[in-house]
Amino acid sequence: MIRHDPLMLRVSRIESLSPTLRRIILKSADNEPLPVAGPGAHLSLTLASPKKVYRNSYSVVSFSGDHYELIVRRVEDSRGGSAFVHENLKEGDLLPSTVPLNLFPIQVGSRKRLLIGGGIGVTPLLSFAKVLQENGDRFEMHQFVREDEKAVFENLVQGVGSKNIHIHTRRPKEGEIQALLEEQPLGTSIYMCGPDGLMAAVDEAAETLGWPENHVHREVFGAAGGKPFKAKLAKSGCELEVGENQSLLEAIEEAGVPINSLCRGGACGACMTSLLEGDPEHRDHFLNNEEKDSGKLIMPCVSRAKSAQLVLDI
């Protein structure tokens, strides 16, 4: 059976892994079989707090036929979604979700996969490592975490049962990423997920060493907030205030103006919108540099404004 959004899920179990990490097990609320979530897939959950409705995307760490496993980090400057998961979500709660979507699939044809993660960026990489290990595919994983979270992350990767997973309790040293990439055999592909600084360092090393772009894959987090700004929606005739812990996309949705979205992390392009006026601060990975410089398009899920106001053609 092909299932459509929204998918009704029930919180079957909540487990605290650390003060800021929770494992959430979601099962089908109506006992209908769940759609398959392949490695790299995510769910966009609708989180209805008393104050506000959040839509947050989380990587599916594992899918076992009757449940999805998520791991959610409580972020300091959270827009509210992850705080809600940590403070309010209870076992038994119902959560509407999209069907699993995958913008970060494992590509075929690689001889080796190099997985590089930072912090909670471990979640999609864990789903990769499990499948690669099961299939006997060659891979190597490097996960950078804070010293105080070493044990938590060691526990997480232990289940994979691979000797090729390395946990580093620090940031990469100068030249370390380059040295790692330098020794990779032909036919290696990189999959990374982590803080911008880490991913930029990997991008830079890969470019310096002559890796073709199509051998470097990334999953991006939804970027956090920034300075508040005004947004004017030309066609619908509304004016919005975009708060510092709110995305432009969320502000548009709150105003009841229809807009497409999928990954909510600047990767898929579903929410791309025409920009009529204003100076955008692009934070997405979808538009190319030319499109960004043109100032005519914006991805409201992550991008914000440098000017006081943006005027959108919706």
Binding site: L181, E183, P185
Partner: peptide, 9 residues
């Protein structure tokens, strides 16, 4: 090719 590293053309 079996021994080469990335960056090779």
């Amino acid at each position: 090719l079996g021994e080469e590293k990335m960056g090779f053309r």
